[in-house]
Design a protein around this nucleic acid. Structure first.
Lengths: 169, 169
DNA sequence: AGCGGTTAGTTCAAATTCGAACAAGCATAA
DNA sequence: TTATGCTTGTTCGAATTTGAACTAACCGCT
């Protein structure tokens, strides 16, 4: 069987994708700038604090945290080091697994997060949320949830035929 | 006047935002992996080739290209250097402005792009576009276009009151 | 023509990210 | 128990990105 013909994006699809790419870059920059200016945190660091704050005890294993943040383990090691240096996160050994390391949100980290969150939310609102109708917000949630699910389900590596595929090669 | 109370994100807004953040990270990784595997290009490099190919003559001034890609000038200088090294882009002096540098897509760059694009589009389809209804795609285009416009319009720096604001401070 | 204030692009150092390699701790089955 | 293989987190080097500083060139005015 020959390689399938490329299904290019039609005009609407291309417009959506191009706008998406532009928006993500711009938004990332705005968020980064705001956080840097108001709290000296990077977006990556803010996301770590936010994720931790949403966990019971404000703590999580390194690998699990890396997975949830969609960051490499080594990348997380680096950023936890930075946050530890600032006193916003502490490392603790995991009781159930000698190898394990718990990243723990400190009291100071919690305060930093509370102080920083309003400005962060304001940016997200100003450039995205407040521009949208409730219906658009709901649709965006659906879109992003579907995409996320698809990618979390799919194994890494080259794409596999998703539907009921034809003859095996 | 006191600082306005923080308008936190409600459940729907938060869900949309969280899903957006997760999806963008996952998608960026998928795109990056596919490009790296199939063509040795990074996403940044692919975007350069794609932007250039959409320009008359396949060429654009450095600053303008950096602006369209939403990348710093120095970042672009670096990547154009990489692409030049690969023979996919060439630098040419700008006729109208002695200071100017044109990034020009080479024949080889064009071939590389044509060879790479199908796999790239396949990923975008597999994890995003093909998961959506035409209505969702249209909504996504609207959302991202609005957000992009808002950010391109707003000056950098701290947020300013957008609507008809009350008393000046 | 020549001055003062922009703009274009590059260079540089610092920060961040990733993957591969590694050491140490678990876990399973014989 | 113990051999074998997986999992955890860190370290290391390479690649990338950014902003600040810098040089060269443009532009409007006098």
């Amino acid at each position: 069987m020959r390689v399938s013909e490329t299904r290019w994006l039609n005009e609407a699809e291309m417009a959506a994708w191009v706008a998406y790419v532009a928006a993500t870059h711009l938004l990332e920059r705005r968020v980064e700038d705001q956080l840097k200016a108001d709290s000296g945190l990077t977006h990556a660091q803010y996301e770590i604090l936010a994720k931790l704050s949403a966990c019971p005890g404000g703590q999580l294993r390194m690998t699990e945290l890396a997975h949830r943040l969609i960051v490499s383990k080594s990348g997380l090691t680096y950023q936890i080091g930075q946050l530890e240096r600032k006193g916003l996160v502490a490392r603790a050994s995991c009781p159930s697994d000698e190898r394990g390391v718990l990243a723990v949100l400190t009291e100071q980290g919690m305060r930093c997060l509370r102080r920083t969150a309003p400005g962060h939310v304001a940016v997200v609102r100003a450039f995205l949320i407040d521009r949208l109708t409730p219906e658009e917000i709901e649709t965006m949630r659906q879109i992003m949830t579907k995409a996320t699910a698809a990618m979390e389900a799919a194994p890494p590596g080259p794409l596999r035929a998703p539907g009921p595929d034809g003859a095996p090669d």
